[in-house]
Each structure stands twice: as structure tokens, then as C-alpha cells.
Design a protein around this nucleic acid. Structure first.
Lengths: 201, 201
DNA sequence: ATCCTGATCCTAGCAGTGCTAGATTCCTAG
DNA sequence: CTAGGAATCTAGCACTGCTAGGATCAGGAT
């Protein structure tokens, strides 16, 4: 069982072709245009073949695109540098591959974070955010802001110019005090809601 | 043409019934369950009647739900009080009516902001954010963060506990310096990208 | 070389979708 | 009471995701 047989290789390659075709069609024509029949025609097989690769059907294919997107985003964020580079890389990813981003964040209800079952690419994607902010809550707020900027901008809800102004403001807000900076720096820091270190994401 | 005829009243009432039914079904069973046939059965008419009210069909109905949602959200935010109350009201709306929120922010690509054609409810919804932050860019960043928190939380991408910690951190970041707080307070504030006052949203 | 076995693939079809043309019914104005 | 017009329904199209069943092909054993 060491060497993968030729059939297995062909099968894996075909799986990749399905995912690639789905992503490309989605990026060009939108997700509603990604139908099982069209995918089947694209790869030159009939529809049931797709269900051999993805028992969950269309949803499974979308999820595969989303997972690949998380892996790619994790790469980009890991080698993005400081906070500014990280924000730029994130927003650039969302802007250049809107359909992939949509699959990752708007389409499937499963694919959850902060659970024992969270897939590794999702964990890897969050890690750079964590190391850029230090605190886990801080990282979640940063991520929320970035996602909000990307999502609202994608739907034309923010002034198209002023993009850089918004990002600079966000960096200015989060980049200053590199320390933990508790939720409120007023006085009463009685209960701490979580163990800060050793995030189990 | 002053007094609305009985037929016109019935027509308007039926339109509301369609929108309400769509929202209720969506909140209970999700948007995929909102089909034109089911809506027709719910209001006791055949499908073509729905197209008499919404020429754009299902998309038009979803858009109507979204628009009503924006109107409701604008009410809530207007009477929410300070920044903390505003954040709480926003997130509470998104959490208690997830399908409506989804229609408002994830489903229709039109319904744009910051355009001459932007409908009034959308403008009204943004106004409290503007008056709570003072600056327009600041308001957009706040809105992005709130939307990100709501959207990621809705998909289970944030730690379910720690919700209040995230909100408190956000308030702490944006609530401090009530002044304009330029994008970067370094040195070079050469060109200003917009007229600060009199936002035309 | 022949046969068998198991995997692989395709054809055909089901139930359900959004949407619409044409016939029909109902209400209202005269 | 009747003609005209608006409102409604029936029936159907083209499409969707998905699947059961038969055909086809590969590889190994005899």
C-alpha cells in the first residue's frame, strides 16, 4: 500500500480539477453558476462521478474550495510581516478572490473555529493574527474588523476611496499598545474571562 | 386618487404578508426553504401573484426583507444611547434575527451604500454610527468591526464565551479619544481625502 | 487465451426550483 | 344586467441537485 497506484493518482488529480474548476467558474460567473452539471462538463465526466469524490455533493465541493482558500490565506498571512502587512495581505486576498472568500465566510455553516473539530488550515490561518496582536481576544477583534472591512467593501457598502484611510485607522487603533491592553483599562479587572496563554484554537 | 381604494389596501396588506412570511420562514428554516411556491401557499394565492408584487421574483422579496430589516435596525440604533448601547443593540439585532441580517448583508449584491441611489433606510441606519464616532471614516471602521463580530460569531468562528470581552475591547479602542483622531497621528497629514462634515450618505 | 470479478462510469429519471404564457374567473363601471 | 378590464389560476418550460440501475472496462486467475 506504499506506492499510490496510477488509478489513485488519476483520482486525486481529478479531485483537484473539480475544485479548481469550481473556483474559477465562481470567480468569473458567481457561485450560482457553479452547478454540478457544468462542473461535470468541464472535467469531461458525468455528474455521478462528482458524487464519488464529494459525497456531500455541491456543498462538499464548495467546502473544499473554502478549505483550500484558508490554506492559501494562511500562507499569505504567515509571510506578511508586521501588522500593516498582515492587514494589507488579508484585504488583498479578499479583494482579488471574492468568490473564494465568499465560500470561506458566507456560504457553509459548518467549518467552525475554536472547536476540537476545527480543521488545521483554519487554525493556521488564525495563528498569524494571534502573534501579531499577542492577545487572543485582541486577535479576534482584529479579525472581525478585517472581515467587516472586506465584506462590507465587497458589497459596496463603504466609500470606495478612503480604503487606505480606514486601514490606517484600524492599524492606529490596534497597533499602539503592544501589551495585553485589557478589555477596559479603567480600574476593575476582577475576573479574567479566559486563560490568556496556550490558545487551543 | 386621494383615498386608497379597498383593492389597493388589500394589495398593500398582501405585500406585507409576503414579506413577513418570507422573513419568518427564513428565520426558522433558513433562506433555501423560502421558495416562491411555499410563500404562495402560505398567503393562499398562486405563484404569479407574487410576481405581480415583486417583478424581480424571489430576489425582490429578499431585498424587501433586507430593506425592512435596515429600517428596524435604524430605529434600534437611533434610540440606543451611547457607544456601548449602540454596539449592544447592533449585535443583539444580528443575533436575534440572523436570517434577516443575512438578507441585509450577505445575499443581495445591489442595495449599495454611499451612492446617490442608496435607499433612505440604509442612510438612516448609518447615521447613529456617524454621530457616535464623529468622523465618517471612524464610523465605517466601527461598522466594519461590528459587522465582523456579528458575522463571524454567527458562523461559529469566534469563541462563544468572550463575547463581552470582545465588545468591551472594541469600545475601549474606539471610545477613548472622541476627537477626530486622524488615520495616522504621525506627521504627514497633507491631503485630506474627503470633506469631513456634511456626509452625503 | 478465456473467464470472472470488482470497480468505474454513464444514461435516464425523480422531485423540486424560479419563472411565465395563456386561459379563466371575478369585479366594477356604465 | 351586461361589457370590459383587472386579477388570478392552470399548466408548463428549462433548470437544479441528486441517485438508482445497467453498461463498460480493467485486472488477475485458471
Amino acid at each position: 500500500m506504499k506506492a499510490p497506484t496510477k488509478a489513485q493518482l488519476a483520482r486525486a488529480g481529478r479531485r483537484d480539477r473539480i475544485v479548481d474548476a469550481a473556483r474559477e467558474i465562481a470567480e468569473v460567473h458567481g457561485w450560482p453558476a457553479v452547478t454540478v452539471r457544468r462542473l461535470a462538463d468541464t472535467i469531461g465526466f458525468s455528474q455521478p462521478v462528482l458524487y464519488g469524490h464529494f459525497p456531500d455533493g455541491r456543498d462538499g465541493i464548495i467546502r473544499a474550495v473554502a478549505l483550500a482558500g484558508f490554506a492559501r490565506l494562511a500562507e499569505l498571512l504567515t509571510s506578511a510581516g508586521d501588522l500593516g502587512g498582515l492587514c494589507a495581505a488579508y484585504l488583498d486576498f479578499a479583494r482579488s478572490q471574492p468568490a473564494t472568500y465568499e465560500a470561506m465566510f458566507s456560504m457553509p455553516t459548518d467549518l467552525e473555529f475554536a472547536r476540537p473539530t476545527t480543521p488545521e488550515p483554519l487554525r493556521a490561518g488564525f495563528r498569524p493574527l494571534l502573534s501579531a496582536t499577542g492577545d487572543e481576544t485582541r486577535a479576534e477583534v482584529l479579525w472581525s474588523a478585517l472581515h467587516g472591512l472586506a465584506d462590507l467593501s465587497r458589497h459596496g457598502r463603504l466609500r470606495p476611496d478612503h480604503e487606505t484611510a480606514r486601514v490606517e485607522m484600524l492599524i492606529g487603533l490596534l497597533g499602539r499598545g503592544q501589551g495585553p491592553r485589557a478589555p477596559e483599562d479603567a480600574g476593575h479587572r476582577a475576573r479574567r474571562t479566559s486563560r490568556p496563554g496556550r490558545g487551543s484554537r
